[in-house]
Design a protein around this nucleic acid. Sequence first.
DNA 1: GCAAGGTC
Length: 854
Amino acid sequence: MGATGVAAPNDDRHEPRGRCASVELIITEKDNAARRIADILSGESMQSTRENGVNVYEWGGTRCVGLSGHVVGVDFPPEYGDWRDVEPVELIDASVEKRPTKENIVATLRLLSRRAEQVTIATDYDREGELIGKEAYEIVRDVDEDVPIRRVRFSSITENEVTRAFDQPESLDFDLAAAGEARQIIDLVWGASLTRFLSLSAGQLGNDFISVGRVQSPTLKLLVDREREIEAFDPDDYWELFAELAKDEDEGDAFEAQYFYRDEDDNEAERVWDESIAESVFETLSSASEATVVDVNRRTRTDTPPAPFNTTQFIRAASAIGYSAKRAMSIAEDLYTAGYMTYPRTDNTVYPDDLDPEALLDDFVGHPTLGESAEDLLETDDDLVATEGDEETTDHPPIHPTGEIPARGEVSDDEWEIFELVVRRFYATLADAARWEHLKVVADVADHSLKANGKRLVEPGYHAVYPYFNTSENFVPDVTEGETLALSDAEIEEKQTQPPRRYGQSRLIETMEEMGVGTKSTRHNIIEKLYDRGYVEDDPPRPTRLAMAVVDAAEQFADEVVSEEMTAQLEADMDAIASGEASLDDVTAESREMLDEIFDELADSRDEIGDHLRKSLKDDKRLGPCPECGEDLLVRRSRYGSYFVGCDGYPDCEYTLQLPSTGKPHILDDTCDEHDLKEIKMLAGRQTFVHGCPQCAADDAGEGPVIGDCPECGAEHGGELAIKTLQSGSRLVGCTRYPDCEYSLPLPRRGEIEVTDERCDEHDLPELRVHGDDDDEPWELGCPICNYREYQAREAESGSDLEALDGIGAKTAEKLAAAGIESVDDLSDADPDAIASDVDGVSADRVRSWQAKA
DNA sequence: GCAAGGTC
């Protein structure tokens, strides 16, 4: 190697190859894969060293290193960086450059390449893996023009697959990588130019820019379309009727039956749309005492076990037991890194051939809680055959346990719950089908019909090892045609048709998958992005007025970017590039032309779009009328980042109200009757609380009873301590000479404070008692000085462990606490981007570095 | 500072 390269002075490629000269360099997509491949190829004899903070696994003459996904990223040249200096339309034809984003990994790769006589690229076996492999290829080629570079492909990191792949090396597929590059360029050019256009038109720069993109915008449109349906929904009244039926007079087997009739299409209908008809049926049912069975229908249904988990179905199952998409993925990543389950980002729903279900089940035999199910499965006589889903891919195996089992104390309760879900899903895929018996009974009363649907689980099958699905039964006794049943308790229920339901996070992810937008690795992040951008609030996510306006604007002027068609077209183009039928340049040029046309249209409507967006932004912040001038009161943010309520009539009207300093304000639907203002909730992680109407809070502000002398200035100036409530809703014990004396002690925000007759001997102050909203025992807060001391002592022990982390000072810790991050545990669980947007002066990367140290 | 895609 290195014979023909042009060597720069001091280029160490000519360093003599000493005793540890390396022959082969293997490059994987991630550290975890590098370690496992090294273990397999070295027969577990590899040594681990570190270079620039990157793990390098070494044995014989081979070194193996893991990247961290993409180590280079695409962007415009620096001169396009200023949003105000560059017209967004100029980005369309700007050049797109690749720059290292993980400097230390790139440096390590360059270093290792210099010593290599052969390089093997072993990134993931999918399109993005090919592109990541090509990025590594270019870094290696930059150092050495001649070293042979080959590519191996395997779909699971098992001994058979990996050794087979290394026995049959192939070459990098540059066309496939180019398909990925086309996507990068198109996403950047469309996303950046349109994001800047919308942001500039609405005057939204800085942290609150208005973003659009090929994946986020169609996802947002799903939510907005549903919200439009909900807003346009006009409910109808209808009635449903029920009665109890029982065999003879035996009360033990009573069951509920529902009235139905045949509609014009001869279908069974239960909803009665006419009140007078409902009333007349009700009268018939209430006056009857028996009904005659006219039809009995019995059938059994096979309930097949579920397919193995891919990412989407895993998120769905975790969501059904109460985990958000983000939390489920975060726990899964931890369990994967710790070696307890396989890679959590996969599209595959078919286990690889070399997965041995019996051997894996064996690993669980004897376990106190997971063992019995495994033993039951192993005891079934027939060979274990796993279910298969529709999707068979080469990326990674379906999510399954590895056979390593964490000790119960080794993982948190949440981690264990997710681990058990993954283990039991694996069990379920090997278990027998369940069998249900359905019994439908129809009984007539005069000329009316009642029906009851009974179901019984006769063979539990996979439900015995996978208890996450609903298996509730509905009892209907054995009856025969012609039998007379006793009828009682007729009921009529008035109901209204309901608007369609909002998408829950997991349903949204499933729909994205069906539409083909996003990937297994990004879909849950896209939803987080919608929250961060101020496009959705609450859970299930509800779009803001801003989101509605962005989708409106896009539909009108750049429909492509909110349409799933854009992804479909891009996929087709990428396939064409991968198969050599089209070139990257053709595809990106055509895409740029389309975008050019869109910008032609946009040019004339810039002000109109900006006005609409600005108005919607205001709608999201509006609380109600200003008591001084009648304009709108809005939630605003000061120059220093704190939130307050200000008047839209500013500077003519300077009316303001304070808000609590903890958390991010969230406007609720509830409105205060007295002031006609919306109530406010402060979002701050576990410290989240309802602040209520800000005007009420301000009105409640003032000085309460005096409870004693001020320990700081009482002797000298006669200052006294009083219970005070601030405009922001905070309560404290403070000196009556404030602001001359700033002595204060904190009090809880909620509950009624009672001043008792008991006194603290040490501080000569009354003990305080706090009564909660409910009937629970009141909280004996005691002497406020003693209470504050205890609080500080507790903080010193637990809360301030943040400050023990390198790079977090007292000030930063305080700011983090205000955002709900009170401990290292909170920090580890938190999303870096969310913290960066909530806490001023803290970047996502800085948070990541703390998380790494934690 | 913009996107989406990897990974942590």
